[in-house]
Design a protein around this nucleic acid. Sequence first.
DNA 1: AAAAGTTACAACCGCGAGCTG
DNA 2: GCAGCTCGCGGTTGTAACTTT
Length: 359
Amino acid sequence: MGRAPCCDKSNVKRGPWSPEEDAKLKAYIDKHGTGGNWIALPQKIGCNAYIFSDSINLTDMCWRKLIIHYTGLKRCGKSCRLRWLNYLRPNIKHGGFSEEEDNIICSLYISIGSRWSIIAAQLPGRTDNDIKNYWNTRLKKKLLGRRKQSNINRLSTSSQDPKDTNGQEDKSVLSNSALERIHLYMQLQSLQNPLSFYNNPALWPKLRTLQEKIIQSLQFLNENTTNPWMQHIDVTPPSSQPGQGQKVDFYEPPTVALNGSNVLESRLDGMEQFNAKIQPISTFQAELDALHLLNNETTGFPPQEDPIAEFDCFKEMDGLKDSVIWWSNDFNSKSASSNTWDATSVLQYQNYVSSYNLQ
DNA sequence: AAAAGTTACAACCGCGAGCTG
DNA sequence: GCAGCTCGCGGTTGTAACTTT
């Protein structure tokens, strides 16, 4: 047996509110308040002008029929409450979110997730519904990016049923909200903390070995290739002193990797090709190795063979790199602040990457 | 100009919490 | 303790407006 409906749905109006209905509701609440009972409110509004009297003891259904008969507000109490709270009550602001409000929403979302009522409480004049809509339609896209969001959706779809084949609930599956928060946190970390991850060796004890391996590979290419573009790649490793070393950032524009702007200008097409090939591949390898380390609980690497062959191997997975690239920005920052990132997050990372077919 | 796709927002739904008799 | 009720919340849906093809 299902839950009893809050009202007689066949006899209440649904959909957008008309100005007349708004005026009726507002006028009543301005005069009488909500009376502490939203369910009965539309009945009172409807009957007030005609026969409303506390001395008349009618059943709920009788009241409702009277409302409809006497052209009262044909809305259920929940609808009235929603309309009042989200639209009609005084000092409500709509749209035009400021940068400061964006920051507050973002920070609180990371901290507490989709607790919209709590977030709304920090933003005077904003409703939870408004903030929720703003987040879902604009702010999330603004902060996370369309492509990345589509990846989250993809993951969410792939794990929509959090039960395994035995019908057991998969405890390692995070909510969509949690995934977004992880992603958002990483993005903000990378913006706010220039010493994070790649720039701070202390944050990547395992991946540091990987980094050195990639650097070795690039140096190998640098020394052995006849490709003129390769010869201008500066692969100086980061200093072991956090904050003092040269930044090794795979998202860095190609200009920082070149010695001489004239080279860049005259050979931009070639450099773009190189950049498109090498930099994302390196990033993606970091991700794969991170996954490898997590899955196998080992700090070793498979014997390195021909680095070019290795890159070719990664090239086959090139189409995948964008799908997981955001995970790498500050992946190890969570291991460096274990009070923030727990084992569940790591498990989710594993689930995320392993949900893709390498083809 | 029209169809298709996307965005933004209002409103609805169902659930859990809490209150009351 | 319980049943019945309302409230408040978060997720979801419906749709008008807008944009792209």
